[in-house]
Design a protein around this nucleic acid. Structure first.
Length: 581
RNA sequence: GGUCUAGUGGUGUAGCGGUUAACAUGCCUCCCUGUCACGGAGGAGAUCGUGGGUUCGAUUCCCAUCUAGAUCGCCA
């Protein structure tokens, strides 16, 4: 067996017509065997590619017993093929095998290793992830992730950033997402929490004087999963001291320019900015997909004096879906209405434009006089479908934002290979929870815009914060903010959300303490690595860009975690499980 | 926790109130010297997710449940 552990002379993707005549030794997996009787072709595969082995009578006894996914060794001479395969780089040659050995056998694989992903259900792929990852497309994605982080590290290293690892075992924070807890053996009844983000640590590194920090940081959130959300994920985490916001923007834009240049060869990215308020008004979303336009148009003024009760005095937002009238059946429009209702709108109005007349359920709501203004505002043409919602401002924009997305999807407006970044700026500082309590929209260490200080007491929703998101193609890539370094401002922010000194001390004691010791002005941002990878890989499923992902129930189908542990282990931790499944 | 969708040989699908449960691929045996998703002949392999109900009869209809996905809530 020993000689089977020797190096191979070549990998399985590099032999070409230039190598003809050379004696080579290859190793890899049997990807496919084609048995023509006394002549057998075997495709040997490693991470570099596939080479065809030509096995005749000399090796018949071995070749006959080789099955898919056996690990094999082949020695032979590179020869030009009689019939060539233009589809693979090694298609001009084959190896005329003189020596063939089985290094390892394989059970019949539950999945066939092919790049036709649809050939296997995702659950089977996830259960046998190590086989799934043999597929070239999956290995390409792992390399893509590697290339992203490599670009990030290269870029930030050149700008004098220091990568620092922050703890995985940390202190539970009482706000935000649910924490994953880890029981302490030494201190029974006490728990570590896995970090939701390195937020507090990176700010402490600014207090410490690192000035420029980054980390490819693993984060954990015990919340329900989504197509773009995993309970553990990786954040490109960045923080800077002694810079202004423009500098931060340009550093971060430069990082994305480098990533896209390195990976896609694209160097014409632009980074427009829009305030949160404009964004909500124009697109009904704080993460709009700008690959298509179809802005929300405000037509409230047209119906100010309407006799129709549910239009009068309401905020009315409309979209014009170009040439969509004939594409939507009544039933499909009803589906859109259901969607609008799901987002708290009371209903959805629609009209189709046909020969300059308005047709459809809502046409009768619009008087002759209003029609002129309607036409002028919306600038519609024959064949267009007009959809609008009348409601309170937030409900109207939210609902129409969702309608805009749904219509764009049906009309296939977004191009796969287009990349539209957007900075969304000036997020509100505060928001109300469902039970009527005021809370910080981002986090309570975010600085507000000083001009708005006058609103804090009486009109807190008008206070804008120095928080910003970077959005790409409808995904939130990351968010960040200018942090509070001024004790007075911090006090005001805490006070307004009703935190007493006691609360503050209990929740953020060590952190607030640290900020008292000469905190420099600082700001930063965190980006979801998986979302970046998803977009670059052209997938809309985060599991595709994670080597060993968890499914919607937060379990791992391969290693079957989480799992119960034996009573001794629990006793050591002072833990008793009450409702054991 | 809510809503919607799906569960049929190893894998991917079809089907239907009464079928020998179909097809492809994979697997096994045999034939084949130019294949490359090789081809040809034959064969094995499925209590149709689970439990109840309706029915003379259920894989099919109904209810429950489990599992998976999408989504709302949630994700400061």
């Amino acid at each position: 067996m020993d000689n089977l552990c020797k190096n191979r002379t070549h990998n399985d993707g590099e032999l070409t017509i230039k190598n003809v005549g050379e004696t080579v030794e290859l190793k890899g997996w049997c990807a496919k065997k084609r048995n023509l009787g006394s002549l057998v072709f075997i495709d040997i595969r490693d991470k570099h590619g596939i080479t065809q082995l030509r096995c005749d009578e000399k090796t018949a006894s071995i070749s006959s017993s080789i099955r898919n996914e056996y690990v094999i060794y082949a020695k032979g001479v590179v020869v030009e093929r009689e019939s060539k395969n233009k589809n693979i780089p090694t298609g001009d040659i084959e190896v005329d095998v003189t020596e063939l050995k089985i290094i390892n056998t394989s059970e019949q694989p539950p999945i066939y290793i092919t790049d036709d992903v649809d050939a296997v259900s995702e659950n089977v792929r996830l259960k046998y992830r190590y086989l799934d990852l043999r597929r070239k497309s999956m290995q390409d994605i792992l390399k893509l992730r590697h290339n992203i982080t490599r670009s990030v590290r290269n870029y930030l290293d050149n700008l004098d950033f220091t990568e620092v690892e922050t703890p995985i075992l940390a202190k539970s924070t009482p706000e935000g997402a649910r924490d994953y807890l880890v029981p302490s053996r030494v201190h029974n009844g006490a728990f570590y929490a896995l970090p939701q983000s390195p937020q507090l640590f990176k700010q402490l590194l600014m207090v410490a004087g690192l000035e420029r920090y980054y980390q490819i940081a693993r984060c954990f959130r015990d919340e329900d999963l989504r197509a773009d959300r995993q309970p553990e994920f990786t954040q490109i985490d960045i923080e800077m001291s002694f810079v202004d916001l423009e500098t931060l923007y340009s550093v971060l834009e430069g990082m994305f320019r480098k990533i896209w240049k390195d990976i896609k060869g694209i160097d014409n990215l632009t980074f427009p900015r829009m305030t949160w308020n404009d964004c909500m008004n124009n697109y009904g979303s704080d993460k709009p997909d700008l690959r298509y336009d179809m802005k929300l148009i405000d037509i409230s003024s047209i119906f100010e004096d309407s006799d129709v009760e549910f239009l009068k005095g309401k905020v009315i937002k409309a979209i014009v879906a170009k040439n969509a009238a004939s594409l939507y059946t009544r039933k499909e429009i009803d589906g859109l209405a259901d969607l609008a209702k799901l987002f708290k709108a009371k209903g959805l109005c629609w009209v189709k434009v046909n020969n300059d007349t308005l047709e459809g359920a809502s046409a009768k709501l619009i008087t002759e006089k209003e029609r002129e203004l309607f036409k002028e505002k919306l600038n519609y043409e024959n064949g267009d479908l007009i959809l609008f919602v009348a409601d309170e401002w937030l409900n109207a924009v939210n609902a129409m934002g969702q309608i805009r997305i749904a219509v764009a999807k049906k009309l296939n407006l977004a191009k796969q290979d287009e990349y539209k970044f957007l900075w969304v700026t000036e997020f509100p500082m505060y928001e109300y929870t469902d039970d009527g309590k005021l809370q910080a929209m981002h986090h309570p260490f975010t600085a507000y815009i000083e001009d708005d200080e006058k609103y804090i007491q009486d009109e807190p929703l008008k206070v804008r914060s120095n928080a910003y998101d970077l959005v790409l193609n409808g995904y939130e890539l990351g968010s960040g903010s200018v942090r509070i370094y001024n004790q007075e401002m911090q006090k005001k922010v805490f006070e307004r959300i009703g935190l007493t000194d006691e609360d503050i001390n209990y929740k953020f004691g060590f952190f607030v303490e640290a900020l008292k010791y000469g905190t420099p002005p600082h700001m930063g941002m965190g980006f979801g690595l998986e979302r970046i990878a998803m977009i670059l890989a052209g997938t809309n499923n985060i599991r595709d860009v994670v080597a060993f992902p968890k499914i919607q129930s937060a379990t791992d189908l391969m290693n079957e975690c989480p799992s119960s542990v034996d009573d001794d282990a629990l006793a050591l931790l002072g833990i008793k499980v009450v409702n054991k499944e």
